[in-house]
Simulated scan of single mutants.
Amino acid sequence: MNLIKQLPLVSVIIPVFNRARYLQEAIESVLSQMLDSLELIIVDDGSTDDSAEVADLFVGKDTRVKYFYQENKGVSAARNKGLSEANGTYIYFLDSDDRIDHSFLRTSYDAIKMDDSDVVVIGAYYESRLPNPTALPTCAQMWKRSFLTEHSDVQFPEGVQPGEDGLFSHCLLALTNRIAANPYGEYFYRSHDEQSHRLATKEGDRIIELVERWLVILAAFYDRRDLWNTKSLHLARFLEHEPFEFRYLKTTLNSAQKQRLISIIQDFYKQRILPQLSSKEIQSLTEPFRYFLYISSHSEFDNFYQDWHAKRQKYLKRVLFLSKFIPFKAYRRKLRDQVRRELGK
């Protein structure tokens, strides 16, 4: 008889705080996966609702399910706790109010295993960020646990939300180019008013303070790893993607908040990033972001961006129209999907 316990291929970590009404669906979506060799780690971050009772429905009935309780410390601490308890060869983080398709883990495992990659980028939308992804949400990343162990100083930053998953992935992506893709992974994202990023968009000052914290964390990481000379473009793209695109362009800010955020981003770029960038690397940044880095007032940029965006939408719609005359069906579909994603931005 073989008494050696077989370790799971994948550990799925679900942090939960007061999500009892959604948790059962999340758990069931994991346990019904085509990939059987898995463990599910539920970390209860001090819930005061029935989350523990929901988890208890599965603990004991399925030996793959483990439950841990901790006093409320935030989602980052809960994910870090789950990571410390994981035994799987690969790690995936699932939010407690979302679900994954039944083939999600199998296709992701196959993709990361094929070339012995350190991470697999999951989903067609996020695959479009390759070959140089600068940050990923938790739903779009599965990591090799040995890689995370090797770089154990990189964890989810506690007390930072939203943006904690972007910081985590950005730092790790700076340390590897062994990146696989799984465009077939289907993630079912639930939208509701209690989500942290939705609440944060109503708090402009808090978002700006968070951006300042992000940059302190990133500067310390780049100092510690001595990455300024080799990875400054990676960091510039993060600055473009997260503080600029996600926060300045997509968050409701008043004039004072906009001006403050402009100053924070410009100062960090000019002092820490620009000295290491070549002219070619600077030109690889988008036109709006390059313009943003040198404007003096938010109204100047907002007027420019409104005009630029209108012209780009017009151009993309023309490309979308002309694409139907492309004779190659697969290429035509790929181009049209890409254009539609751009139009949605």
Score class of each variant (00 low, 15 high):
A52V: 07
D44H: 04
L320D: 05
E212I: 03
F325H: 13
Q195L: 15
T134Q: 10
A200D: 05
K73C: 11
Q24F: 01
I41G: 00
L9N: 07
R333P: 00
N254Q: 07
D56S: 14
S76Q: 05
P8Q: 09
R99K: 14
V211M: 08
D49I: 10
E28V: 05
S255F: 06
D50H: 12
R19E: 12
L335I: 15
H102T: 14
R225N: 10
Y305Q: 05
G123W: 03
Y22C: 04
F58N: 02
V160W: 05
A52L: 11
L239E: 01
R340S: 11
V75R: 07
R224M: 06
W214A: 02
T176V: 07
G60D: 13
I41P: 03
H192E: 05
K231R: 13
D115E: 15
E39M: 00
G204R: 09
F244K: 06
R336D: 11
D205A: 07
K231V: 06
S37Y: 00
G344T: 10
Y315A: 15
K66H: 14
N132A: 13
Y126P: 12
L277A: 07
R64I: 00
T230F: 09
D223L: 02
H298R: 03
K334F: 14
K81R: 13
Q276M: 13
F156N: 05
N132P: 00
V154M: 01
D337P: 02
L105P: 03
I262K: 03
H234N: 12
E203Q: 15
F246T: 05
R272N: 08
K334Q: 15
P243C: 01
R333H: 15
L23P: 05
K5H: 10
A256T: 09
L253R: 02
A52D: 10
A181F: 01
L94D: 00
S76G: 14
M1I: 09
R19P: 01
G88C: 06
D226F: 08
H309Q: 15
F292W: 02
Y109C: 08
L316V: 02
L239R: 08
K81D: 12
E164G: 07
N87T: 02
R237K: 09
Q271D: 04
Y294F: 12
W308F: 15
V154D: 05
S232A: 08
F188W: 11
L235K: 11
L94Q: 04
F68Q: 12
D205K: 06
V12T: 14
V160H: 04
I326Q: 09
L233S: 02
L83R: 10
A256H: 09
M1S: 15
L23F: 10
R290N: 13
L31M: 10
L94M: 03
I91F: 06
D95L: 01
H298G: 03
F104C: 03
S11M: 02
V54C: 03
H241A: 14
D118K: 00
D97T: 09
I4F: 12
Q306K: 15
L316T: 02
I100L: 12
S146Y: 00
Y305E: 05
E300T: 12
F168G: 02
Q257C: 04
D116W: 08
D337C: 07
K258S: 07
Q257N: 08
W228P: 02
P327D: 12
K113H: 14
L253H: 05
D97S: 13
A330V: 15
L7I: 03
H197Y: 14
L293M: 11
H151L: 08
F147W: 07
F304S: 08
P137N: 10
L218E: 11
Y125L: 14
T89H: 04
K270W: 13
Q155D: 11
L3H: 15
